[in-house]
């Protein structure tokens, strides 16, 4: 045996190669099991990034089903409440280029809104209560309803079913408590003060850009 190997180096090489591949295969297999990273399934991760307004503007009954659909390969730009920020986050997670928001599903709104029921007009039909995906409307049949503003996601699913049209989507007003500083203009970008008395035509270009 030894003789055979020493006389035919091809066998030695073969044995070495096979041995090495078995060894490393085993090692890698062991490592894969031992150091397995328990990650959230992708659907969970996508669902984490969606804004959870449950508004259905994407065409799915809630955020979770849309997350499932994205995981199955659906487009990531169907969520107007999340807007570009959510699209970017999803693109980042999935490692794909970030598309623009699909306008078919609605437009990104600048301000957050909450539903408000004009209570003296409410007839107590409970239709909005049934429509609310997060049970944020309080009331009973033939009794006045009201929105729990803190729970409202601003999905506006309750507006349409209201037979007397007494639900408004009001913008959330900024208070001193949640006021925050704005980001300053980027350095190196033109600011009014460094345009003083110089370059006529370039200023116009800068403004147009």
């Amino acid at each position: 045996m030894i003789e055979l190997i020493s006389q035919h180096p091809i066998f030695a090489a073969l044995i070495a190669m096979v041995g090495l591949s078995i060894l490393f295969g085993g090692l890698l297999g062991y490592a894969a099991e031992k150091f397995k990273v328990e990650g959230d399934p992708i659907v969970e991760q996508i669902d984490e990034l969606l804004p959870q307004t449950q508004c259905g503007q994407c065409g799915f009954p809630g955020c979770r089903p849309y997350a499932q659909s994205i995981a199955d390969g659906d487009a990531i730009n169907k969520c107007p409440p999340g807007g570009q920020a959510t699209i970017n986050a999803l693109a980042n997670l999935l490692g794909v280029p970030a598309p623009e928001l699909d306008q078919e599903h609605g437009q990104e709104s600048e301000v957050k809104t909450v539903a408000y029921i004009r209570e003296d007009e409410c007839i107590g039909c409970t239709k909005c209560i049934q429509a609310c995906p997060v049970d944020a409307i309080l009331g009973a049949a033939k009794l006045m309803h009201t929105v729990i503003a803190d729970e409202c996601t601003g999905c506006d699913l309750c507006v349409e079913p209201c037979p007397v049209d007494c639900i408004d989507m009001l913008p959330v007003e900024e208070t001193i408590a949640d006021w925050k500083w704005s980001t300053p203009a980027k350095p190196g970008q033109m600011i009014a003060t460094d345009r003083r008395g110089e370059l006529g035509s370039n200023t116009v270009q800068e403004d147009a850009a």
Partner: peptide, 10 residues
């Protein structure tokens, strides 16, 4: 700077 439309002197 001129090509990038920025203030040259700045």
């Amino acid at each position: 700077m001129r090509m990038r439309g920025r203030s040259v002197s700045f």
